[in-house]
């Protein structure tokens, strides 16, 4: 069952406000997803002007977050929401805040890109594009779980977080070897480690969005083990 039970509200104004909240969250989600994607593209293509464009989109993301907060505050004060409506509004505030942070992290990525573009490339990117793709998928699926009110998809997103963490660790180990090899690599490696960390934080926020969406749909959290990836049974040697 969807949280509104497929029925419209008796107050059409309230119904419109709830629809507007959903629309604004999706708009903010799409914006920060694009910022993350283009931020990483500016890294891979060494495109400083693209990086600066991404930075300029942050104000719009901040404004959308502020708009969502205003709308939610107004609905709470004037409509006294309950049950699914209340959970949607609470989720709206929390999700918007996470998405706004994702936008900030995308800006952080582009800041490192501008610094990296002033030096020669360190190495071809192998791990980062995979990590970027996995993070974007998590973000997109967390938003899909919100739109479709799909609790199973929300769980899948949370379970994917471990993969991004693992990739972050792998990249860290690889970059360590570059730093040990030649001290002149340290500056560039450090910036790439930051980028990797930002992606990992974006994945964490996407996972947080998915958990909030799960709560919005079900009105509670599953047992902790549900968030963990189900490992295949161990084979006997």
């Amino acid at each position: 069952m969807s949280i509104a039970g497929g029925k419209t509200h008796t107050s059409s104004d309230f119904e419109k406000e709830l629809a507007e909240l959903r629309r604004m969250i999706l708009e903010l989600g799409a914006k920060v997803e694009l910022m993350t994607a283009k931020g990483m593209e500016s890294l891979f293509k060494r495109d400083s002007s693209l990086a600066e464009r991404v930075m300029s989109w942050d104000d719009e993301a901040d404004a959308l977050n502020a708009g969502i907060n205003d709308l939610c505050l107004r609905m709470m004060a004037l409509r006294q929401p309950t049950a699914g409506d209340l959970r949607l509004i609470l989720a709206g505030v929390k999700v918007a805040s996470s998405l706004e942070r994702i936008g900030d992290l995308a800006v952080n990525i582009t800041e490192r890109v501008l610094e990296l573009n002033e030096e020669a490339p360190l190495k071809p990117y192998v791990e980062l594009p995979r990590m970027s793709e996995a993070t974007r998928l998590m973000l997109r699926e967390s938003l899909d779980s919100f739109v479709k009110e799909d609790a199973d998809l929300a769980i899948k997103v949370v379970r994917s977080d471990d993969e991004v963490d693992t990739m972050n660790q792998q990249l860290l180990r690889e970059l360590l070897t570059y730093m040990m090899e030649d001290a002149r690599n340290i500056g560039r490696c450090q910036r790439l480690i930051f980028v990797s960390k930002y992606l990992e934080r974006i994945a964490d926020h996407a996972s947080g969005v998915a958990k909030t969406v799960y709560f919005m749909i079900r009105g509670g959290f599953p047992p902790k083990r549900a968030w963990k990836k189900q490992l295949p049974p161990k084979r006997l040697a």
């Binding site: 069952m1 509104a4 039970g5 029925k7 419209t8 509200h9 008796t10 107050s11 309230f14 929401p81 309950t82 049950a83 699914g84 409506d85 209340l86 959970r87 079900r218 009105g219 509670g220």
Partner: peptide
């Protein structure tokens, strides 16, 4: 009842989606 009612009918009533 007001945060997470078990039945759709209860939810419809308290959220104002009745009928």
């Amino acid at each position: 009842i007001f945060v997470n009612p078990r039945l759709p009918r209860t939810s419809d009533y308290i959220t104002g989606r009745f009928g």
